[in-house]
C-alpha cells in the first residue's frame, strides 16, 4: 500500500506529460488537418493527388509503427528527435490525417448554392472560403474534432513504448519496482484516462445534438 501511495506523485507527473503531449498533438493536428483539408477540398484533382496519397497513407498505417519509425528509424538518416518530439510528431501526423478528412468532409458538405451565391456577388475563391464556407463548415467539424481529441488522449499512451514518461510509462516504472501494486496502479491509470476523456466525449455528444 505504501508503495502505491509512493507512486502517486510520479503518476501525477506522468498525467501532466500525457496532457502536454496530447495538447501539443491536438494543436498540430488541427493545424495540419485544417490546411490539408481545406487544400484538398479546393485544389483541382491533379494537384490534390500528393495530399490524397499522404492522407491515405497515414490513415492506413498503425500509429505505433509510425512512432517507432520516427524515433528509431529517422536517426539513421541523421534526423535525431527526442522521444517526446517523436511522440508528438507521430500523433500530430496521424490525427492530422484524420482531421483533414473531417475538415474536407465539412467543407464539401456545404451546399454548392452557398459558393455560387457568394461568387455571384463577386467574391473571389479565397473570400468565399473564408467568409462563407468555412464559418459554416466549422460548426460541422466541431463534434468530430472533439471525438478526435479523445482519440488523441487515448492514443498518446502508445508514447510509453518509446519511453515518454507519460501516465502509462510512470505506472509501468512503478510496477516494475513493485509488481504487487500492478492492480491498483493500472486501475488508477484506467480511471485517470477515463476521467480525462469522459467530459470530452460528453462534450462531443452534446455538441452533436446541439448542432445537428
Amino acid at each position: 500500500m505504501s508503495s502505491y501511495l509512493g507512486a502517486l506523485p510520479a503518476l501525477v507527473r506522468g498525467l501532466g506529460t500525457t496532457f502536454a503531449v496530447a495538447l501539443a498533438s491536438m494543436v498540430l493536428a488541427v493545424t495540419f488537418g485544417f490546411i490539408a483539408g481545406t487544400l484538398r477540398s479546393t485544389l483541382p484533382r491533379a494537384l490534390d493527388l500528393p495530399l490524397l496519397g499522404l492522407v491515405e497513407f497515414l490513415r492506413g498505417i498503425p500509429l505505433l509503427v509510425l512512432m517507432y519509425f520516427l524515433f528509431f528509424g529517422l536517426p539513421q538518416l541523421g534526423i535525431h528527435t527526442t522521444n517526446n518530439v517523436a511522440a508528438v510528431a507521430s500523433l500530430a501526423l496521424y490525427a492530422g490525417a484524420l482531421g483533414s478528412e473531417i475538415v474536407r468532409g465539412a467543407i464539401v458538405s456545404i451546399p454548392a448554392g452557398q459558393t455560387e451565391a457568394a461568387a455571384a456577388l463577386g467574391l473571389n475563391t479565397f473570400s468565399i472560403l473564408r467568409l462563407v464556407v468555412i464559418p459554416q463548415a466549422v460548426r460541422r467539424m466541431l463534434p468530430p474534432f472533439v471525438a478526435l481529441f479523445a482519440l488523441i488522449v487515448e492514443s498518446s499512451s502508445l508514447a510509453a513504448l518509446i519511453d515518454v514518461t507519460d501516465l502509462l510509462q510512470a505506472a509501468r516504472q512503478n510496477v516494475e519496482r513493485d509488481p504487487d501494486i500492478a492492480l491498483p496502479i493500472y486501475l488508477t491509470v484506467l480511471v485517470a484516462y477515463f476521467i480525462v476523456n469522459y467530459p470530452v466525449s460528453l462534450a462531443s455528444q452534446r455538441l452533436e445534438k446541439k448542432l445537428a
Binding site: P111, G113, Q114, E116, A117, A120, L121, L123, S127
Partner: peptide, 25 residues
C-alpha cells in the same frame, strides 16, 4: 442574381447578407 433556393448565408443576419458584397467586393 437571385436563386430558386435563395442561398442566403445562414450564419449571417439579413443585414449582413446584404452588406457582404458591398463591403468585401
Amino acid at each position: 442574381m437571385v436563386f430558386q433556393q435563395f442561398n442566403l448565408f445562414p450564419h449571417m443576419t439579413a443585414q449582413e447578407n446584404v452588406t457582404l458584397g458591398p463591403r468585401k467586393v
